[in-house]
């Protein structure tokens, strides 16, 4: 059978241009039906799911599906899963949790890590490494106390803020208006000597009396600080704002007023629940400096 014979057998559409005819080769039936089904499915889809654009939004679809709704549902599912742990954590005695309930403790460390990385790292840094003006949480020096209960209180109520009536509060006077420049220079030398840094011996000797008169009420006669008022230990190697003479002079003259928000949901919208406060306190406590 030649090619011409084959041509004879096939139906043509009747179209002809310059002797060239158009074959009629219809699509297979099943293929066409699949095509119709996809059209039907496409129409159904636009009714079932958000599809048609409107002036201020789009049709919602009768199934009420949205990706935001899906995320919300996923979050709700995880929260429901964690609810028993959180309830137990909110009610537990933080000081003894590690030995009393190791599993819940481990949950708290992980959950607290998430809370910390969301809310705390902005100032306190990764793993609580701290920054100038923002205390390092992984060392052994604490302004307001480093027990897990102390930490939970600080997280809940914050420091020197106006939202919590129970916030940790103290204020160092700006000694620039009280002391003379010479007295300030002397007390700075004394403070540097206290922490074992290089200082002019005569100035430091003169500064001791200034310190006892003006500073020891909060920082203690030995300069080791007082946690009741959040007065830093001046005799150690750690400086929140810097231990060089210029920075200490600035601190003495103008004072510092570091503020931390009260994180409890009692004091701010979208704040931390009691379980989250406890979790982040446990996390911070195990960063390396917990007492």
């Amino acid at each position: 059978m030649s090619k011409n014979d084959k041509k004879q057998q096939v139906e043509t559409t009747g179209h002809e241009w310059d002797g060239i005819q158009e074959f009629n080769n219809p699509l297979p039936r099943w293929w066409v039906w699949v095509f119709y089904v996809t059209i039907g499915w496409g129409l159904w889809y636009t009714v079932a799911y958000p599809a048609w654009p409107l002036l201020t939004g789009a049709t919602e679809g009768y199934k009420g599906f949205s990706t935001r709704g899906q995320v919300a549902a996923d979050i709700a599912a995880v929260e429901a899963q964690n609810a028993p742990n959180n309830a137990a954590l909110a009610a537990s005695d933080l000081a003894t949790l590690q030995t009393a309930n190791p599993a819940l403790y481990s949950y708290a460390v992980n959950a607290g890590g998430a809370v910390f990385r969301t809310n705390c790292v902005q100032c306190h840094g990764n793993e609580g490494m701290g920054a100038t003006g923002y205390p390092t949480l992984s060392d052994d020096d604490w302004l307001w106390g480093g027990s897990v209960v102390d930490i939970a209180y600080t997280v809940s109520n914050g420091v020197r803020n106006e939202s919590s009536p129970d916030a940790r509060f103290s204020q160092m006077p700006a000694f620039g208006d009280i002391l003379s420049n010479e007295e300030i220079a002397n007390v700075v030398a004394y403070v540097r000597a206290l922490s074992g840094q290089e200082a002019d011996a005569t100035a430091a000797a003169a500064g001791q009396q200034v310190f006892l008169d003006n500073c020891s009420a909060c920082h203690g006669e030995d300069g080791k600080g007082d946690r009741m008022v959040g007065a830093p230990n001046l005799a150690d190697a750690l400086w929140l704002y810097g231990g060089d003479a210029a920075t200490i002079t600035q601190t003495v003259k103008n004072a510092r007023f570091g503020v931390m928000p009260a994180w409890s949901e009692a004091f701010r919208d979208g704040g931390l629940t009691q379980a989250e406060v406890n979790a982040v306190a446990i996390y911070v406590h195990q960063l390396g400096g917990g007492e």
């Binding site: 793993e127 490494m129 060392d139 020096d141 074992g196 150690d236 190697a237």
Partner: peptide
Amino acid sequence: NPTFVTMSDGSIR
């Protein structure tokens, strides 16, 4: 991150 932490007695951890 951080690679080390300074302790209050000046030791490095």
